[in-house]
Design a protein around this nucleic acid. Structure first.
Lengths: 214, 214
DNA sequence: GTCTATATACAGATAGAC
DNA sequence: GTCTATCTGTATATAGAC
């Protein structure tokens, strides 16, 4: 009997996962309104009634998926601790990870979805921002404060500075990708973009050479 | 007879304008999928058949509106010529105009709409980017090249630099507004944001003080 | 828990009178 | 050109058998 229950549970949670996976693909691909519960059921290999028995409504299914995506997508991005490495090395390495994540098709699709649905679901959008953007800004700001304390950078408002670096890294890269303006940038163009943003940031927040200027 | 025709034309073009206005409001507010031709007809004070006789399809009406919006929204933003004023004054003034435009509810709604629909209508999205983002980047880059030639700034890649300034001005201001994360920022917070971005940019692209460091 | 079949609503688009 | 009335497809959601 215990075995039977376990098997049933497994099958059930397998179906649940199938539904989540199918719904994620379809919501990311089509957007909220165009995604249909019929198509989700078909792609998950279950009936529509099963989808509803698991998630109750389209809106609830959508929220479940957004919450899961915010977690799984952002996990890989970590600001390295201040311990070793120059600010230039550290920031360059971090910037590469960030831009790489930024341009992932699933990141772009999630961004699209959240921005499009924010007016109808502001709580979910705000929640996602706090789990995503706000968190990485906070982590980068903490790093910048450490470097400021060590005297290797001169950062007065660390949160503002962190947002500036993210802003430069986004540049028009993100919007061009979101709007499908042109083909994906080459590795060389990306590298120039990233190096230039980090270089501008470092010049902007270099410790003032006390002996020279006014 | 000529009078009669003129009167008829006027009434017709009035209805056409009414439809455009109603459709603009509803598309910006509800997004493409949620906007219904019934509601557009009601708000414009005409029948649905009239809407179709003027624009043929929902998609065509949408495209007409996007094209119009791109023009009307971006017209006010002009990069001042290099002629007079320090880079700091010029860039600060331009930055204020840009951020002001950026946070207009209609700009945010248009942004949302374009990003959401880009996968289904990439040509329209690319066209809008070229008429909007790309144009202002080009104009700012031209200004930066002039200042570089005058020796007041040291800008190697003007287009990259322009995108960095725009990126810093966006910062997380734009995404927070798009995602409805919190109430609108105060004038003071906006001013700090803008001043800090311009200051970081100017320090990042200051002409090197030849006498001092290596 | 899972299915088939269906209720109900509303969408985009058009026919045909005037 | 503009209207009323309608066609046709498809959406979310549920009832009821198993």
């Amino acid at each position: 009997m215990a075995t039977s229950v376990t098997t049933a549970d497994r099958r059930t949670s397998t179906k649940r996962r199938d539904i989540l996976r199918a719904a994620t693909e379809i919501f990311l691909d089509a957007g909220y309104e165009r995604a249909s519960m019929d198509e989700i059921a078909v792609r998950a290999g279950v009936s529509k009634a099963t989808v509803y028995s698991h998630f109750g409504s389209k809106e609830a299914l959508f929220e479940a998926i957004i919450r899961e995506l915010c977690q799984s997508l952002l996990t890989p991005l970590q600001v390295p601790p201040s311990s070793r490495g120059s600010p230039e090395e550290t920031l360059l390495s971090f910037a590469r990870s960030y831009v790489d994540l930024l341009l992932q098709p699933s990141s772009l699709a999630l961004h699209r979805l959240l921005v499009a649905e924010a007016p109808r679901n502001p709580e979910l959008a705000a929640l996602s921002y706090r789990a995503g953007g706000a968190r990485v800004v906070g982590e980068l700001a903490a790093y910048l404060r450490q470097e400021d304390a060590k005297g290797s950078l001169a950062v007065a408002d660390a949160k503002l500075a962190a947002e500036q670096l993210f802003g430069m890294l986004n540049g028009h890269l993100q919007i061009r990708a979101l709007l499908r303006v042109d083909e994906n940038p080459t590795r060389e163009a990306l590298d120039r973009h990233i190096r230039s943003a980090v270089a501008t940031f470092l010049r902007g927040y270099a410790t003032a050479p006390d002996g020279s200027g006014s």
